[in-house]
Simulated assay, not measured.
Amino acid sequence: MERFEKDNIPPQIRGKKLDITKQRLFRDPLKLKATFTEARNRLLHINNWADLVAGASSTFYLLDKTGQEVSRIAKEGDYVKIDIPGPGPAHGNGFDWVTITKIDERLEELYVMLTLKPAPPPDKPDSGKVAHFFKANASTTLVVKVEDEKLTVIYAGRNEEINRENDRSLDNIRNMFVGLGAKLGLSHPQWEKLVLGILGSEN
């Protein structure tokens, strides 16, 4: 299965990277398969991500290609609107934005992944300017997979560079503080909690 990650996780070229991996062991193959299905559903129901993280500081909203909020599992081409505490970028109407650039789902092999990348907001798709504290080449990939008797959830952040290419200096300052916090590892606990939330409790 590692070959899937090689194909799906963007290469690290510059900036910061962050990897988080959590696993659970199952002796019962039926329980393992059922738990994979539950974890897959938690991964793809992005509107519920904040509920998986105790004390979550950000909220995620799934939108379709036209910019309408939707209540369903994620699809390639969807947008995700991220509400981070404090002022957001003016270009993003006060929110950070990413798009789902790829979903690779192989249910017969108990494998699913999605990749998110910074993007312009859906009402300004041709602006060429992302509304996010990282530059456009950054990515976040989340994987849920089964190998042997293990259920594994992976977070892979790649090419994380602070976005200082905004028209408003206030947005550049804001991105510097938010992005610097992420580069210093302050976002690690939140992503780790999300990975554990997707993995599910052992009860």
Rank of each mutant, 00 (worst) to 15 (best):
S187Q: 09
D83I: 13
S201A: 14
Q12C: 02
K31Q: 08
G179L: 05
M1C: 14
K117N: 05
S201G: 11
R40V: 04
V130L: 01
T101R: 03
L184Q: 12
E160R: 02
A34Y: 03
T59Y: 06
A39Q: 03
K102A: 07
A156Y: 08
L62M: 07
D104E: 04
K17C: 05
K31A: 08
L25E: 15
Q68P: 08
V153T: 08
H91T: 07
L25T: 14
T101G: 05
V98E: 07
R168L: 15
G185R: 07
L196V: 06
L62F: 13
R3N: 11
T115R: 09
S71H: 10
E149R: 14
G77L: 10
T115N: 01
K124P: 07
D51Y: 01
L63F: 08
H132F: 13
D148Y: 08
F26H: 13
L116S: 07
N93C: 15
T152A: 01
I103W: 05
R164N: 10
T35F: 12
P87K: 11
E69M: 15
P87N: 06
E108Q: 10
N93H: 15
F177N: 11
G77Q: 14
N48G: 06
E149T: 12
A156K: 07
P189E: 11
A50H: 12
M113T: 06
H188Q: 07
G15D: 04
D167L: 06
L116E: 08
K124F: 14
S57H: 01
K117P: 02
H45V: 10
L18E: 04
W191V: 14
A56N: 14
P120K: 05
L32W: 00
L52F: 14
L199H: 08
K183R: 10
M113C: 12
A131P: 04
A50M: 06
